[in-house]
Protein backbone atom coordinates (compact mmCIF):
# COMPACT_ATOMS: atom_id res chain seq x y z
CA UNK A 1 0.00 0.00 0.00
CA UNK A 2 1.12 3.49 -0.72
CA UNK A 3 1.78 5.59 2.38
CA UNK A 4 -0.73 8.39 2.75
CA UNK A 5 0.80 11.81 2.37
CA UNK A 6 0.63 14.24 5.30
CA UNK A 7 -1.54 16.57 3.26
CA UNK A 8 -4.06 13.86 2.42
CA UNK A 9 -4.31 12.61 5.99
CA UNK A 10 -4.97 16.17 7.24
CA UNK A 11 -7.78 16.50 4.72
CA UNK A 12 -9.24 13.16 5.82
CA UNK A 13 -9.17 14.28 9.45
CA UNK A 14 -10.96 17.53 8.62
CA UNK A 15 -13.64 15.70 6.72
CA UNK A 16 -14.20 13.24 9.57
CA UNK A 17 -14.44 16.12 12.01
CA UNK A 18 -17.00 17.93 9.87
CA UNK A 19 -19.14 14.83 9.37
CA UNK A 20 -19.08 13.81 13.03
CA UNK A 21 -19.68 17.38 14.17
CA UNK A 22 -22.59 17.69 11.76
CA UNK A 23 -24.13 14.46 13.01
CA UNK A 24 -23.78 15.58 16.62
CA UNK A 25 -25.51 18.89 15.84
CA UNK A 26 -28.24 17.04 13.91
CA UNK A 27 -28.98 14.63 16.74
CA UNK A 28 -28.91 17.41 19.31
CA UNK A 29 -31.28 19.46 17.18
CA UNK A 30 -33.65 16.51 16.81
CA UNK A 31 -33.67 15.89 20.54
CA UNK A 32 -34.54 19.55 21.13
CA UNK A 33 -37.36 19.34 18.58
CA UNK A 34 -38.63 16.17 20.22
CA UNK A 35 -38.44 17.69 23.67
CA UNK A 36 -40.33 20.81 22.63
CA UNK A 37 -42.84 18.68 20.72
CA UNK A 38 -42.72 20.96 17.69
CA UNK A 39 -44.69 18.62 15.45
CA UNK A 40 -47.54 18.47 17.92
CA UNK A 41 -48.09 14.85 18.84
CA UNK A 42 -51.51 14.37 20.39
CA UNK A 43 -51.93 14.29 24.12
CA UNK A 44 -53.69 11.61 26.14
CA UNK A 45 -57.14 10.53 24.95
CA UNK A 46 -60.08 12.27 26.64
CA UNK A 47 -61.57 10.35 29.54
CA UNK A 48 -64.64 8.35 28.57
CA UNK A 49 -67.50 9.42 30.84
CA UNK A 50 -69.45 6.63 32.57
CA UNK A 51 -72.81 5.99 30.92
CA UNK A 52 -75.81 8.04 32.04
CA UNK A 53 -77.57 6.22 34.88
CA UNK A 54 -80.91 6.34 33.08
CA UNK A 55 -79.57 3.68 30.71
CA UNK A 56 -78.94 1.41 33.70
CA UNK A 57 -82.54 1.69 34.88
CA UNK A 58 -84.13 -1.75 34.66
CA UNK A 59 -87.59 -0.86 35.93
CA UNK A 60 -90.53 -1.72 33.65
CA UNK A 61 -91.56 0.82 31.06
CA UNK A 62 -95.13 1.12 32.22
CA UNK A 63 -97.08 0.70 35.41
CA UNK A 64 -100.19 -1.40 35.42
CA UNK A 65 -103.34 -1.09 37.45
CA UNK A 66 -102.03 -3.87 39.70
CA UNK A 67 -98.81 -1.86 40.33
CA UNK A 68 -100.83 1.21 41.26
CA UNK A 69 -102.94 -0.81 43.68
CA UNK A 70 -99.83 -2.33 45.22
CA UNK A 71 -98.22 1.10 45.63
CA UNK A 72 -101.51 2.49 47.05
CA UNK A 73 -101.55 5.25 44.49
CA UNK A 74 -104.27 7.41 43.05
CA UNK A 75 -106.76 5.23 41.17
CA UNK A 76 -109.23 7.96 40.26
CA UNK A 77 -108.48 7.43 36.54
CA UNK A 78 -110.12 4.03 36.85
CA UNK A 79 -113.25 5.36 38.55
CA UNK A 80 -115.36 5.33 35.37
CA UNK A 81 -118.65 6.11 37.09
CA UNK A 82 -117.37 9.39 38.45
CA UNK A 83 -118.32 10.74 35.00
CA UNK A 84 -120.26 8.00 33.21
CA UNK A 85 -123.79 7.02 34.07
CA UNK A 86 -124.14 3.40 35.18
CA UNK A 87 -127.39 3.00 33.28
CA UNK A 88 -126.13 4.61 30.04
CA UNK A 89 -123.04 2.97 28.55
CA UNK A 90 -121.13 5.47 26.37
CA UNK A 91 -121.85 5.33 22.65
CA UNK A 92 -118.91 4.88 20.28
CA UNK A 93 -118.60 7.30 17.37
CA UNK A 94 -116.63 6.75 14.20
CA UNK A 95 -115.62 8.92 11.29
CA UNK A 96 -116.29 8.07 7.64
CA UNK A 97 -113.10 5.97 7.47
CA UNK A 98 -114.34 3.90 10.43
CA UNK A 99 -111.73 5.40 12.70
CA UNK A 100 -112.80 5.77 16.31
CA UNK A 101 -113.44 9.33 17.39
CA UNK A 102 -111.81 9.50 20.80
CA UNK A 103 -113.81 11.88 22.99
CA UNK A 104 -112.02 14.90 24.36
CA UNK A 105 -112.17 13.57 27.93
CA UNK A 106 -110.03 10.61 26.82
CA UNK A 107 -107.69 12.62 24.59
CA UNK A 108 -104.68 10.94 26.27
CA UNK A 109 -105.65 7.68 24.59
CA UNK A 110 -103.95 7.17 21.24
CA UNK A 111 -105.59 4.37 19.33
CA UNK A 112 -103.29 2.07 17.39
CA UNK A 113 -104.15 -1.54 18.09
CA UNK A 114 -103.92 -4.09 15.32
CA UNK A 115 -102.78 -3.69 11.74
CA UNK A 116 -104.29 -0.46 10.35
CA UNK A 117 -105.55 0.21 13.90
CA UNK A 118 -108.53 -2.01 13.17
CA UNK A 119 -109.07 -3.13 16.75
CA UNK A 120 -110.76 0.14 17.63
CA UNK A 121 -114.00 -1.06 19.19
CA UNK A 122 -113.70 -0.17 22.88
CA UNK A 123 -116.07 -2.95 23.92
CA UNK A 124 -113.77 -5.57 22.43
CA UNK A 125 -111.99 -5.37 25.75
CA UNK A 126 -113.92 -3.01 28.02
CA UNK A 127 -117.09 -4.37 29.56
CA UNK A 128 -120.04 -2.37 28.24
CA UNK A 129 -122.44 -3.02 31.15
CA UNK A 130 -119.75 -2.47 33.80
CA UNK A 131 -116.96 -0.11 32.76
CA UNK A 132 -114.98 -0.90 35.91
CA UNK A 133 -114.12 -4.30 34.48
CA UNK A 134 -112.90 -5.83 31.24
CA UNK A 135 -114.45 -8.68 29.39
CA UNK A 136 -113.23 -11.46 27.16
CA UNK A 137 -115.34 -12.21 24.08
CA UNK A 138 -116.42 -15.50 25.63
CA UNK A 139 -118.19 -13.52 28.36
CA UNK A 140 -115.68 -13.87 31.18
CA UNK A 141 -115.39 -10.69 33.21
CA UNK A 142 -111.88 -9.72 34.32
CA UNK A 143 -110.55 -7.02 36.65
CA UNK A 144 -108.02 -4.44 35.47
CA UNK A 145 -105.41 -6.24 37.57
CA UNK A 146 -105.67 -9.48 35.57
CA UNK A 147 -105.37 -8.71 31.89
CA UNK A 148 -103.15 -11.49 30.41
CA UNK A 149 -106.09 -13.88 29.78
CA UNK A 150 -107.89 -11.06 27.99
CA UNK A 151 -104.92 -10.29 25.72
CA UNK A 152 -104.36 -14.01 25.34
CA UNK A 153 -107.86 -14.53 23.99
CA UNK A 154 -106.63 -13.04 20.69
CA UNK A 155 -102.84 -13.43 20.99
CA UNK A 156 -102.84 -17.16 21.69
CA UNK A 157 -99.28 -18.15 20.75
CA UNK A 158 -97.87 -15.09 22.52
CA UNK A 159 -99.91 -15.91 25.61
CA UNK A 160 -98.62 -19.48 25.52
CA UNK A 161 -95.02 -18.19 25.19
CA UNK A 162 -95.60 -15.75 28.03
CA UNK A 163 -96.90 -18.47 30.31
CA UNK A 164 -93.80 -20.54 29.53
CA UNK A 165 -91.57 -17.55 30.27
CA UNK A 166 -90.47 -17.21 26.65
CA UNK A 167 -92.29 -13.93 25.93
CA UNK A 168 -91.68 -10.84 27.99
CA UNK A 169 -89.19 -9.77 30.56
CA UNK A 170 -88.03 -11.99 33.37
CA UNK A 171 -85.72 -11.33 36.24
CA UNK A 172 -84.64 -12.73 39.57
CA UNK A 173 -83.78 -16.44 39.65
CA UNK A 174 -83.59 -18.93 36.80
CA UNK A 175 -83.16 -21.60 39.49
CA UNK A 176 -86.60 -21.61 41.09
CA UNK A 177 -85.29 -23.65 44.04
CA UNK A 178 -83.08 -20.70 45.01
CA UNK A 179 -85.55 -17.88 44.56
CA UNK A 180 -88.49 -16.55 42.62
CA UNK A 181 -88.45 -15.23 39.09
CA UNK A 182 -90.06 -11.88 38.52
CA UNK A 183 -92.61 -11.73 35.75
CA UNK A 184 -94.29 -8.75 34.18
CA UNK A 185 -97.81 -8.35 32.92
CA UNK A 186 -98.72 -7.41 29.32
CA UNK A 187 -99.38 -3.76 30.16
CA UNK A 188 -95.99 -3.35 31.88
CA UNK A 189 -94.49 -3.12 28.40
CA UNK A 190 -97.38 -2.62 25.98
CA UNK A 191 -99.88 0.19 25.98
CA UNK A 192 -103.13 -1.74 25.44
CA UNK A 193 -104.49 1.03 23.20
CA UNK A 194 -101.38 1.04 20.96
CA UNK A 195 -99.34 -2.01 21.86
CA UNK A 196 -96.49 -1.59 19.42
CA UNK A 197 -93.31 -0.71 21.32
CA UNK A 198 -92.41 2.87 20.38
CA UNK A 199 -88.95 3.68 19.05
CA UNK A 200 -86.57 5.05 21.65
CA UNK A 201 -83.13 6.52 22.13
CA UNK A 202 -80.36 3.93 22.24
CA UNK A 203 -77.63 4.00 24.88
CA UNK A 204 -74.30 5.33 23.57
CA UNK A 205 -72.22 3.02 21.43
CA UNK A 206 -68.58 2.16 21.90
CA UNK A 207 -66.24 5.15 21.91
CA UNK A 208 -63.93 5.00 18.93
CA UNK A 209 -60.33 5.54 19.89
CA UNK A 210 -58.27 8.24 18.21
CA UNK A 211 -61.08 9.82 16.26
CA UNK A 212 -61.84 12.91 18.29
CA UNK A 213 -58.76 13.53 20.35
CA UNK A 214 -58.12 16.78 22.23
CA UNK A 215 -56.17 19.59 20.55
CA UNK A 216 -52.45 18.74 20.32
CA UNK A 217 -50.05 19.86 22.99
CA UNK A 218 -48.36 23.28 22.54
CA UNK A 219 -46.19 23.44 19.48
CA UNK A 220 -47.28 22.02 16.20
CA UNK A 221 -44.98 24.17 14.03
CA UNK A 222 -44.07 21.23 11.84
CA UNK A 223 -47.59 19.98 11.28
Amino acid sequence: MEPISAHASARLRTRTRVVLGGLAVLFFGMSVLFFLNLWGRTGPQPAIPPVDLRFLDTSPWRRTYADLVKAREDLSDYDCYACHDKAKPPVLRFDSGHRLLVPQEHANIVMGHGSHDRNNLCYNCHNEPNLATLQVRDGRELGFDNIPPLCGSCHGPTYRDWEAGAHGRTGGYWDRSKGAATRLSCANCHNPHSPRIPAREPAPGPHALRTAGPPPLPGGLLR
Binding site: T170, G172, W174, G179, C189
Partner: peptide, 22 residues
Protein backbone atom coordinates in the same frame (compact mmCIF):
# COMPACT_ATOMS: atom_id res chain seq x y z
CA UNK B 1 -75.85 -17.46 37.36
CA UNK B 2 -73.98 -19.90 39.60
CA UNK B 3 -76.11 -18.80 42.53
CA UNK B 4 -79.26 -19.24 40.49
CA UNK B 5 -79.85 -15.71 39.24
CA UNK B 6 -80.31 -14.48 35.69
CA UNK B 7 -77.42 -12.68 33.94
CA UNK B 8 -77.36 -8.88 34.10
CA UNK B 9 -77.90 -8.40 30.36
CA UNK B 10 -81.08 -10.46 30.50
CA UNK B 11 -82.55 -8.51 33.41
CA UNK B 12 -81.81 -5.23 31.65
CA UNK B 13 -83.38 -6.18 28.31
CA UNK B 14 -86.52 -4.01 28.13
CA UNK B 15 -88.21 -6.15 25.49
CA UNK B 16 -87.49 -9.59 26.92
CA UNK B 17 -85.49 -10.65 23.88
CA UNK B 18 -82.90 -12.44 26.03
CA UNK B 19 -83.61 -15.85 27.52
CA UNK B 20 -81.28 -17.88 29.67
CA UNK B 21 -81.45 -21.11 31.58
CA UNK B 22 -80.57 -24.72 32.09
Amino acid sequence: TRVGRYPACLEACPVGARKFGN
